[in-house]
Amino acid sequence: MANSTIWWLIAGAAIVLELLSGTVYLLLLATGFAAAAIAAHVGAGTVAQLVVAALVGVGAVLAWYVVQRRRPGPPPTGSNRDVNLDIGEIIHIEAWNPDGTATVRYRGAQWTVVPRSGHAPATGEHRVVEVIGSRLVVEKT
């Protein structure tokens, strides 16, 4: 069996394992294996194929790592609209309690509402900016 065929089989196996595991790293290593297969097609020796596989595969993983480190992380779960669909919704507050909370009926249930830190309690329309347990953190719209 030719070296290029072996490299293509290894690349295919890495892709299958990546699909089963859900990570991108095996896919990046598979690019290194595919590069080694191409090197075998052009007539490079076994050592050159190994070096190409290592350089391309590890280089792709390191490049991915650097890109991911520079990307900002997602917001905390309590204030992430992708996780909690209440974020951004508008509620109406009629009155605030002396302790700085309010009680509103929202989505068929009673909720305790607190103002976002640094914002004074005021009546009227408010936007939900965070959910902490059973409390809605709001700011005036």
Results as ranks from 00 to 15, higher is better:
residue 7 W to K: 08
residue 15 I to L: 15
residue 16 V to Y: 10
residue 18 E to F: 07
residue 18 E to Y: 10
residue 19 L to F: 10
residue 26 L to E: 06
residue 26 L to R: 02
residue 27 L to Y: 07
residue 28 L to S: 06
residue 29 L to A: 09
residue 29 L to K: 06
residue 30 A to I: 01
residue 31 T to P: 13
residue 32 G to K: 00
residue 32 G to W: 01
residue 33 F to I: 10
residue 34 A to K: 07
residue 36 A to Q: 06
residue 36 A to K: 01
residue 40 A to M: 07
residue 41 H to I: 15
residue 44 A to R: 07
residue 44 A to N: 15
residue 46 T to S: 15
residue 47 V to T: 10
residue 48 A to K: 09
residue 49 Q to C: 05
residue 49 Q to P: 12
residue 50 L to N: 07
residue 50 L to A: 10
residue 50 L to V: 13
residue 51 V to N: 03
residue 53 A to F: 08
residue 53 A to E: 08
residue 56 V to P: 03
residue 57 G to P: 03
residue 58 V to D: 10
residue 59 G to V: 05
residue 60 A to E: 13
residue 60 A to R: 08
residue 61 V to I: 12
residue 61 V to P: 08
residue 64 W to Y: 09
residue 66 V to A: 14
residue 72 P to N: 01
residue 72 P to H: 01
residue 76 P to Y: 02
residue 77 T to F: 15
residue 80 N to S: 05
residue 81 R to P: 05
residue 81 R to L: 11
residue 82 D to F: 08
residue 83 V to R: 06
residue 83 V to A: 06
residue 85 L to M: 15
residue 85 L to R: 14
residue 85 L to Y: 15
residue 86 D to V: 13
residue 88 G to M: 01
residue 89 E to G: 06
residue 91 I to N: 01
residue 92 H to M: 11
residue 95 A to V: 04
residue 96 W to S: 00
residue 96 W to F: 01
residue 96 W to H: 00
residue 100 G to L: 09
residue 101 T to Y: 00
residue 102 A to S: 00
residue 104 V to F: 00
residue 109 A to T: 10
residue 112 T to M: 06
residue 115 P to Y: 01
residue 116 R to Q: 10
residue 116 R to F: 15
residue 116 R to P: 06
residue 117 S to R: 15
residue 117 S to M: 14
residue 121 P to V: 05
residue 121 P to H: 03
residue 124 G to N: 03
residue 125 E to W: 11
residue 127 R to N: 04
residue 127 R to Y: 01
residue 129 V to S: 04
residue 129 V to E: 05
residue 130 E to H: 09
residue 130 E to Q: 14
residue 131 V to Y: 05
residue 133 G to E: 02
residue 134 S to T: 15
residue 135 R to Y: 05
residue 135 R to I: 11
residue 137 V to F: 00
residue 137 V to T: 03
residue 138 V to I: 05
residue 139 E to F: 09
residue 140 K to D: 12
residue 140 K to L: 15
residue 140 K to S: 13
residue 141 T to N: 09
